[in-house]
């Protein structure tokens, strides 16, 4: 799926420990170097996803996040810092990622994903990680991921709980199969610890790396749900909805 780009000696030195992973090796690292990922919001979840993907050597990150850093961001949005309060979040994120990995190509977009920009943002990348809080923007991104046949890593958190799945257009459920409409009880702001968003963010980054470098078994057709309050982890089968308004027209097998 992704282009192989040869590594420099500096890159071989930086990524040495992960190149030692048997089913990844230098060929996997070359795929990551040639890969591009859209991260929809670099908040509690997306900050950690972006940081791990930057550390792992993904070539290009497209970051979409509107607004300025607020005090209430700082318990979990690890790319935001106290000295950046009141300044654009996406610039704080880009600054911190460049400190970690100066080789990284960053496209910083000071907007959230919407119906207006979803198509052009998704066109630019090989894979999307959804870290957004609003169902409207998640649904807009899902439609584009399905139409453009791009893998979508879906992650979410609440309180000490979190869930994650990896969606492959036409092969696995899409977001609209899983959640056909916004739940009435959902609120824009909710209780959560940064360690919870960080945990699921790390898992999301690993899912993206596995898909981009084509190794391991991603969470396709499965929802990993966990509660860090009692450390319960469950892996559940999820199913395509034959009457899904977004993906039911695709002619791939409907089984997961």
């Amino acid at each position: 799926m992704t282009e192989h780009l040869p590594l420099t000696d500096e890159e071989r030195a930086v990524y040495e420990w992960q190149i030692w992973v048997d089913d990844f090796r230098e060929a996997g690292q070359e795929k990551l170097k040639g890969a591009s990922v859209l991260i929809s919001r670099v908040g509690g979840l997306g900050s950690v996803v972006a940081y791990e993907l930057a550390a792992a050597g993904v070539g290009t990150l497209v970051l979409a996040h509107a607004g300025n850093v607020k005090p209430s961001d700082l318990n979990r949005q690890l790319l935001m810092t106290h000295d950046w309060l009141g300044k654009p979040r996406v610039e704080s994120a880009a600054r911190r990622l460049r400190e970690l990995n100066p080789r990284l190509n960053i496209v910083a977009v000071g907007e959230n994903v919407s119906e207006d920009n979803a198509a052009s943002l998704v066109e630019q990348v090989d894979l999307i990680v959804d870290c957004a809080p609003l169902f409207e923007e998640r649904f807009a991104m899902n439609r584009q991921a399905v139409q453009q046949r791009k893998p979508l890593v879906e992650c979410a958190m609440f309180d000490l709980e979190a869930s994650i799945t990896t969606m492959m257009s036409g092969k696995t459920p899409c977001l609209a199969c899983l959640t056909p409409e916004k739940p009435a009880a959902w609120t824009r702001e909710f209780p959560v610890f940064g360690a919870v968003s960080g945990t699921v963010g790390c898992i999301a980054a690993m899912e993206a790396i596995k898909v981009l470098a084509d190794f391991g078994q991603p969470l396709t057709g499965q929802l990993l749900a966990f509660d860090l309050r009692d450390m319960t982890f469950s892996k559940r089968s999820i199913s395509r909805n034959p009457s899904c308004s977004v993906c039911s027209g695709l002619d791939d097998s409907c089984s997961t």
Binding site: R41, D130, A156, M157, F158, S163, V192, S197
Partner: peptide, 10 residues
């Protein structure tokens, strides 16, 4: 039987 309300990022 497991019942779950969808959640999001943030």
């Amino acid at each position: 039987v497991t019942l779950m309300t969808p959640i999001s990022g943030g």
